[in-house]
Simulated scan of single mutants.
Amino acid sequence: MSSLLPFFPSPPSEFATIALVSSYLLVIVVLAEGLNRLSHTTAEFTRKIVHIGSGNVILFAWWLQIPLWIGLGASFVASLVALVSYFVPILPSLNSVGRQSLGTFFYALSIGLLVAGFFPQLPYYGVIGVLVMAWGDGLAALVGQRWGKHKYRIWGNGKSWEGSLTMLGVSFAVTLAVLIGVYGNNGILWVVAGLVAIAATVLESFSNFGLDNLTVPLGSAGLCFYLMSWWGMSL
C-alpha cells in the first residue's frame, strides 16, 4: 500500500491500530459534545467539528495500512451510531432529533464504500474522496454560515457563493496535495485536481437531505480515478 508520509517503519499491530483510531475518534466526539453541552457553541458548528475531524481518520487508515476488515467494521459501527443518534438525542454533535438529514449516516457509509473500493491497492483515491468531503464541505458550510452574503438556490437547496468558492478551493488543494504526494509534481495533476474540485462543488450544490455526504466523496474519488486512468497514471 502506498503511503503519503513514512511515519511508521512497519505497520503496527491490529490492536494498536484499533486503539489509536478509536482514541482519536473518541477525542473528537468528546470535544464536540463538550462544546455543545457546556458552551454557547451552535449544534451545527459542533457537527462540523465531528465532520472534519472524523474524516481525517482515512489518513490513519492509509498511513497505518489498516487491514480491510478494520476499516469496514469501523464504518459499520459509525453508520449504526449515526442512525441511532438521528432518532435518539444521545449525541447532539452528530444529529439533532427532527433534523431532516441522514448526512452523518451517509458520511460513514461513504467511507466504508471507499475503503472497500480502493484499499489496499489504491488508497489515495479513497483518501481524496473522504478529505474533499471532510474539509471541502465542512469549511464551505462554516464560511457560508458566517460570511455567506450572496445566496442562491438549486432545487430548493440554499447555498452561498462564498461557501461554494470555499468548497472549490479546498477540494482543489486537497486533491492536488494528495496526488503530488503520490506521483510528484506534474501538470496533469493540476488539471485533474481542478476537474475533481468542480465536480465536487457541483455535487455539493445539488444534493439534498445529506446525500452530498455520499455523492461528493464517491464522485470525487471515482472521477479522480477515471481521469488518472485515462492519462495512464492510475497506478
Score class of each variant (00 low, 15 high):
F87D: 06
F87M: 03
V88R: 13
V88Y: 13
P89M: 12
I90C: 12
I90V: 14
L91H: 03
P92R: 04
L94D: 03
L94Y: 11
L94T: 05
N95A: 14
N95S: 13
S96D: 08
G98M: 04
R99T: 01
R99M: 01
Q100R: 12
Q100T: 14
S101K: 07
S101H: 06
S101G: 14
S101P: 10
L102M: 15
L102S: 09
G103P: 09
G103H: 06
G103D: 08
T104W: 00
F105Q: 00
F105K: 00
F106L: 04
F106Y: 12
F106C: 05
F106D: 01
A108N: 11
I111K: 07
G112Q: 15
G112E: 13
L113Q: 08
L113H: 09
L113T: 08
L114N: 03
L114Y: 01
V115I: 13
A116S: 14
A116G: 08
A116M: 13
G117C: 11
G117V: 09
G117E: 12
F118K: 02
F118R: 00
P120T: 03
Q121M: 14
L122E: 15
Y124Q: 10
Y124K: 02
Y125A: 02
G126W: 00
V127K: 09
I128E: 03
I128G: 07
G129N: 03
G129T: 05
V130H: 12
V130R: 13
L131S: 12
M133T: 13
M133L: 13
A134C: 11
A134D: 12
W135T: 07
W135I: 08
W135N: 12
G136F: 03
G136R: 11
G138C: 02
G138P: 06
A141R: 04
A141C: 12
A141Y: 05
L142I: 15
L142G: 12
L142W: 07
L142E: 13
V143M: 09
Q145C: 10
Q145I: 11
Q145M: 15
W147A: 14
W147R: 14
G148F: 01
G148I: 01
K149D: 15
K149E: 15
K149I: 11
H150G: 06
H150N: 10
K151C: 01
K151W: 13
Y152A: 03
Y152S: 05
R153W: 12
I154C: 15
W155C: 04
G156H: 13
G156C: 09
G156A: 14
S160H: 09
W161I: 10
W161V: 06
W161L: 13
W161R: 06
E162M: 10
E162T: 08
G163M: 06
S164W: 05
T166R: 04
M167K: 04
M167R: 02
L168G: 01
L168F: 09
V170Q: 11
S171I: 02
S171L: 08
F172Y: 10
A173S: 08
A173T: 07
A173Q: 00
T175W: 03
A177D: 03
A177W: 03
A177M: 04
V178R: 04
G181N: 02
V182G: 04
V182K: 05
Y183M: 08
G184I: 06
N186Q: 08
N186T: 01
G187N: 06
G187Y: 01
L189I: 02
L189V: 01
V191A: 09
V191W: 08
V191Q: 09
V191Y: 08
